[in-house]
């Protein structure tokens, strides 16, 4: 073979590669999955296309299979672990970037989905940027400590769940308090960046490429995040502070409404009742997020998602409406929150 550079025929991620990779993910076999990715890298495929073509694509399938109840939580966990390990191993194969200012990548507090932030970190590193991943569930103290020690150009904050928006706000406040710009991204945000800007983020990036572009243009130093003083923000604070009581009361009311007795046996995480009750705390947090961002679609999207996941598990069709009206009842003294729940 003559010529240099990657062969366009092998360098792209093809459907066959994705299928071999998918078989390894399904079989929870990280070595086999890595081998598929490694082969593409050796053939000249850039890291970002391997990550998006194999890892991100297969993780979307994993999420869909869980949502439709075709996979158990255990199966989903095992497959996700394979994807994470492949990203880490491909990342470790890369040379250490040495140029440019440091960047910190973090997952918002109480989020445990490392994969999106890992993909962003290693994609940026493959472009020579000195990005460091701080891990899942980054507390404000940890973030601020790392900012003081490394003086990053910016913090890239990942949030996958709309229920994280109120915690994103707290983290934005902490990061901007150090004068550091904060670029947010992830499925918790809308593509137009409305939620991001309402929360005081410096910018929203849809993906690593957009983040890299933004890093050229965003200010090097930002001021403190101005406090959110609107009435919705006050309600959001009340809601978050009493969230646990509200969730407990709403689940109890739903249990009664559906005529379910106390079920003492440990539930499998895959039953519709486990899903209904397990995700109930997210409803309160989503309402708080909608109040903070002024975007009611946060609540609507959550309800749509909930309905799909429950339908996939043959849930009692009365369950979700019952939970929703229980929540509306529990927050009746918080008028804007109640109005958001009454929309459905």
């Amino acid at each position: 073979m003559t010529g240099s550079g990657p062969d366009p025929l092998v360098a792209a991620v093809g459907p066959d590669d994705l299928e071999s990779y998918w078989r390894a993910v399904t079989a929870a076999d990280p070595d086999a999955a890595y081998a598929v990715a490694r082969r593409l890298r050796t053939a000249g495929a850039p890291l970002d296309s391997v990550l998006s073509g194999l890892v991100v694509a297969s993780q979307a399938r994993v999420g869909g299979l869980w949502a439709r109840n075709q996979w158990t939580v255990a199966h989903e966990h095992a497959a996700t672990a394979v994807n994470e390990e492949v990203v880490r191993r491909l990342g470790a194969d890369q040379p250490e970037p040495t140029d440019g200012p440091p960047l910190l990548v973090a997952c918002v507090e109480r989020e445990w989905h490392a994969l999106p932030a890992l993909v962003v970190t290693h994609t940026l590193r493959s472009w020579g940027m000195r990005a460091t991943f701080l891990g899942v569930n980054s507390s404000r103290d940890q973030l601020v400590s790392r900012i003081l020690d490394t003086g990053p150009r910016a913090v890239l904050l990942s949030a996958s769940l709309a229920s994280s928006l109120s915690r994103v706000r707290r983290q934005v406040e902490a990061i901007r308090g150090t004068g550091t710009p904060v670029v947010v991204g992830g499925a918790a945000f809308d593509a137009a960046g409305v939620r991001a800007s309402a929360l005081g983020a410096t910018a929203y990036a849809a993906g690593p490429a957009e983040a890299a572009e933004l890093l050229v243009t965003i200010p090097r130093h930002v001021s403190q995040a101005p406090p959110l003083r609107h009435a919705e923000a006050d309600e959001a604070r009340v809601l978050v502070a009493s969230g646990e009581e509200i969730v407990r009361a709403a689940i109890a009311a739903t249990t009664t409404a559906l005529g379910r007795g106390d079920d003492p046996s440990p539930a499998s995480p895959d039953t519709w009742w486990s899903v209904l009750t397990g995700f109930a705390p997210h409803v309160v947090d989503c309402v708080a997020g909608a109040l903070l961002t002024g975007d009611p679609s946060v609540v609507d999207e959550t309800r749509t998602w909930y309905a799909e996941v429950l339908a996939g598990r043959d849930a009692d069709p009365r369950a979700l409406p019952a939970l929703w009206s229980a929540f509306a009842h529990e927050v009746r003294d918080i008028p804007r929150a109640a109005a958001l729940l009454a929309r459905g």
Partner: peptide, 19 residues
Amino acid sequence: SRTVSAIQNPERALLALVD
């Protein structure tokens, strides 16, 4: 004063000052 003292990382504080 606010800018320089908010940024408790020396390199970044100098950059902010010069900016």
